[in-house]
Design a protein around this nucleic acid. Structure first.
Lengths: 131, 131
DNA sequence: TTAATTATGTTATATTATTACACAGCGTTA
DNA sequence: TAACGCTGTGTAATAATATAACATAATTAA
């Protein structure tokens, strides 16, 4: 576990929950699970999520509207993210492949666009569900 | 086998609207724009969108909950999609780069997962907004 | 021609996310 | 020391996105 001294109370509660989860969590499921800790409203959850995303502690799985803890211990911000998502069991794994991230970070096409961020989601069947 | 070349009435109306749009459209904005053509309920829109996505005529921009027409004339299904998104003007361009798509389609990591689909979203500033 | 499939229409509701407003704590600075 | 900016909190209300459930019609396949 990384240090979290700089996080606020709500941010800590929510990060802790996400880090302990075995899979992606949805915002309202997070809300349900932290009610006993005094967090009562969606906005309290979304504010903490926004901050945690901003500092790279968690990522949003866009295609699922769900949130996972960052597994790259050195990930400070979410500027280059890649995930593999099992379409059967909905398990999500963060892909950390140096070649891939270098390839994508350096990618440029003819559009003249300057990229500063990307998000990649692979879909398929995980080892277990393939059987 | 199935011809399926023929789209239904609602599907045609909605595809037509999306194809004529200069940028991504959101579901409820689509709904608003097709009310005069007799489509009255969200579900009618979402059903048409689902079908159009399935056959590769449109794509969903996951990070924006918005829909764009497919610009790859040969794109039959949405199994390998890449977009560049301007964070200022929200313009979206479909990236069609053979090297990139080959690289990603053949990508495999140690997870043992078999990928059959991916979606990549690049973020940055487009040529105009960069100035 | 019947059965299966696909699409439609409609109402209601579920799920995801934000706006708006009030206030509290904390470090800076002037 | 208070005035300020900044970040975070609490709360209510509501907006935006998406699906469930049910009934019916149109199209396709055997």
């Amino acid at each position: 576990m990384q240090k979290q001294e700089n996080l606020s109370k709500n941010q800590k509660i929510i990060l802790d929950l996400i880090e302990k989860s075995s899979g992606p969590l949805k915002a309202y499921s997070i809300l349900f699970n932290v009610k006993k800790q005094g967090i009562k409203a969606p906005l309290q959850v979304y504010r903490a999520l926004d901050k945690l995303i901003e500092i790279g502690k968690i990522h949003k799985i866009e295609s699922r509207n769900a949130f996972v803890a960052c597994k790259n211990s050195n990930c400070q911000v979410s500027k280059a993210t890649a995930f593999s998502i099992c379409e059967n069991c909905e398990d999500v794994t963060e892909v950390s492949n140096l070649k891939l991230s270098k390839y994508l970070s350096n990618f440029a096409d003819k559009s003249g666009m300057k990229y500063n961020k990307y998000n990649l989601e692979f879909f398929g069947l995980c080892k277990n569900c393939k059987k």
